[in-house]
Amino acid sequence: MRNIVKLLRFDFITASPIGVPVAVTMAIVCTVLGLIFSPSMGAYAMVACVTFIIPLRQFEDKGDTNRICGVLPVKRGLIVRTRALYIYLVLFIPQLYAVLLAFISQRLSLGQALMSYENSVSFAIEEAFSSASITYGSILVLFTVVCIAMSYMDMMLQIFGRENQAKIIIVTAAAATLFMVLRGSLIDNHVIEPADIPDPQSAAEWWIRYALVDALVLVICMVFGEIAARLTAEREI
């Protein structure tokens, strides 16, 4: 456990020169805009936190830092597994911020108070503040998509190498497109029915949904990390 914390800290320090300025700027901007225009603005700050993830590999390539795996007194597999947890955490924490911002923003409803005149902007703001399910739902969906996409990419890059990044993106995008087309076609032809998940009706139901989805995403991230660790742990550096 201690080594995991040490490695999380190691990755955070590596990414922080880029990640911290971006995250702080986005947090300030999103807090202001979120309080006035749309409670779901915090989700953008969450997306901005990918700057804590993407630069890691760029720094690694630039600085021959892969060798650090051979120098640090920790198992290489643990380094890979911890990276998956790191990706989850750097998105989970801003997700909490986004939810908190949405909650405060909904309660204060500053946007509706400030923009009382009738026009299309004020109508859009009113809509944004009135729909809790869209706000909380969009934060949750964004967190899920970004977190799974980031940990998936990290797994693939660990396995196939950064030099194959373009190929990985092309193949993954093609597979995802094919899946979406196939799914759409099956739904259109009434072969399958689209899943109808009702919106939670209370705060408690939202908490449960968040807990379940976040737990599921954590499991997926850790599975990706485990696959990458097993396939790369025995590799030579």
Binding site: V5, K6, R9, F10, I13, T14, P17, F59, K62, G63, D64, T65, N66, R67, I68, G70, V71, L72, P73, V74
Partner: peptide
């Protein structure tokens, strides 16, 4: 202690940040 022909630490970091990274491991 290992010294390679090229630097294996984060080149964008300064000596203080490198210490913060490595200290907990030793």
């Amino acid at each position: 202690g290992v010294v390679f022909d090229s630097l294996y630490l984060g080149q964008h970091l300064n000596a203080k940040q490198i210490e913060a990274q490595l200290k907990p491991f030793y």
